[in-house]
Each structure stands twice: as C-alpha cells, then as structure tokens.
C-alpha cells in the first residue's frame, strides 16, 4: 500500500512577513519550514506505515527551494520523494492547485492521503477536501489521530460534544489538525540517507495537465491595518477603570 503525504513549504511561523510593491516579499522571508499541520500529518502517516507496512511518498509543489522540505521528510522516514515543479504556485487558484496535487496522488498510486488541515500561508483548508473530491475519495478533516482498523481506518476528529472516532475505507484523505504526537526528530543516519535519496521531479506537462487560467486575480497584498494605539494603565487599581470603559466606551460587557 502507498500512503501519500502532501507537504507545503511556507514561511516559518516566527518569520516576519513584509510587503513590497503590493506583494508579500518571499525574498525577505528569513526561514522556510513545513507548514505546522503538515508535520502532524507526516508523523501520523509514518506511524500508520510502521503499523501496517507499505510505502510513504512525500509530495510537494513549488519552486526549487522545496527540495529541502522533501529531504527533511526523507530524514524522518519518507520512502519516496516527489517534487511537482512549479515556479509560482501562489498564482494558481484552488482549482488548479488541487488538479495538480490530485494528478500527482494518482500517479503515485496512493489510496490514502495525509495532509494538514490548512497551510500556514493561505490559511484556507481547501486542499484536503478538494483533492478528495477530484480523486473520488472520502475525506475527514480536523483529524488528530488515525489507526488501521479491520481493513479500514479509524480517525479521531472533534464533534459538537467533544471528539469522535469515525470509520472510513480507502480511498480517503485525512486533513490533520494538531495531532497527538509531534513530528519526530531525524537521527544522523536518517539525515545521511536523505541526502542520497533521489527526488522525482514531475512537471505540469508530465502530469498531462492543462490547468487553464486562474479564475481569480490577486489585486494586491497589504500589511494588516494598523490599530490606533490603545490606552495603557499602571497597576491593578486601574482594573475597575478599564472595566468601566469596557462597559461605557466599548459596550462589550
């Protein structure tokens, strides 16, 4: 069995985002990392593979810098690495991005797909369910744990009263929230092996895709609106003043 993990390289959550000429300046990003939810997905996929055998293929789309992400995934245990070469994935709309990833999942022969519930840059959460729709799979989102169970899978997700365990069969997509276990750290042997691991690079043409044109156009990026400076008070004696202001100025209590 082949398990696919969809990974996205994003600016590290500690990185400052700067805007120049109406676009987020990627050259100013100090550090690129796994999108945090993808790390939980990768760890859960590794554990599932360890419990039932099979192969794990790590798939990412983006420019050349994304190869580092695949090496990092290999260092913790990904068996095969696929880089969908695309210079500026930010110009794709959701339809185009999902077509690309769905084609790669199908080409990899995977019947189970792990991904993060949303990426830390676009914050959308469309990829997991969208890819599931295109490959005709079930999808469970906000997952924190997946185990194999009587030929299928048992996934834990939130419910209105707490959590629930739901059963699902392949083909299926699991979109991960923060999981139960943090991503393992690579050991030296893993890092050495990862350096030698071949990366398969697939172009959009090789995937046999005609992505058409994007249905949306990005007009601009801008920094978040500056908040006017607030009022600052010293000492706990001011608490009652602030509570009064919350009632009379802000009308929120």
């Amino acid at each position: 069995m082949t398990i696919a993990v969809l990974l996205k390289q994003v600016p590290d959550t500690t990185a400052k985002i700067t805007v120049s000429n109406g676009r987020v300046d990627e050259n100013a990003v100090s550090k690129w990392s796994f999108s945090p939810y993808d790390e939980y997905a990768l760890e859960a996929a590794l554990q599932l593979k360890e419990s039932m055998g099979g192969e794990l293929v790590a798939i990412t789309a983006g420019p050349a810098r994304c190869e580092k992400l695949l090496r990092d995934a290999a260092a913790v245990g990904a068996d095969n690495l696929v880089h969908i070469s695309a210079e500026n994935i930010n110009d794709f709309d959701s339809t185009q991005m999902q077509k690309l990833l769905a084609a790669a999942v199908e080409k990899s022969g995977s019947s189970v797909v792990f991904c993060g519930k949303q990426a830390a840059d676009t914050n959308s959460g469309s990829t997991g369910p969208g890819v599931a729709e295109l490959i005709g799979a079930s999808c469970i989102t906000m997952v924190s744990e997946v185990i194999s169970d009587s030929g299928g899978y048992l996934a834990t997700r939130p419910s209105s009263s707490g959590h629930e365990k739901v059963a699902v069969s392949a083909p299926c997509v699991f979109a991960f929230d923060k999981g139960v276990v943090e991503m393992r750290r690579p050991n030296v042997r893993g890092i050495m092996m990862a350096k030698k691991k071949p990366i398969e690079t697939w172009s959009i043409e090789e995937l046999g895709l005609d992505l058409g044109t994007s249905g949306i156009s990005i007009d601009s990026h801008s920094p978040p609106a500056e908040k006017p400076p607030g009022q600052k008070f010293e000492g706990a004696d001011s608490v009652s003043t602030v509570v009064g202001k919350l009632r009379d100025e802000a009308n929120v209590i």
Partner: peptide, 11 residues
Amino acid sequence: IYSGKAVETTT
C-alpha cells in the same frame, strides 16, 4: 493571509 500578518485583495 499568513495568519493575519498580511491582507490579500482578489477579484
């Protein structure tokens, strides 16, 4: 976008 570190306007 970027968890509120920037704002995107699209048409």
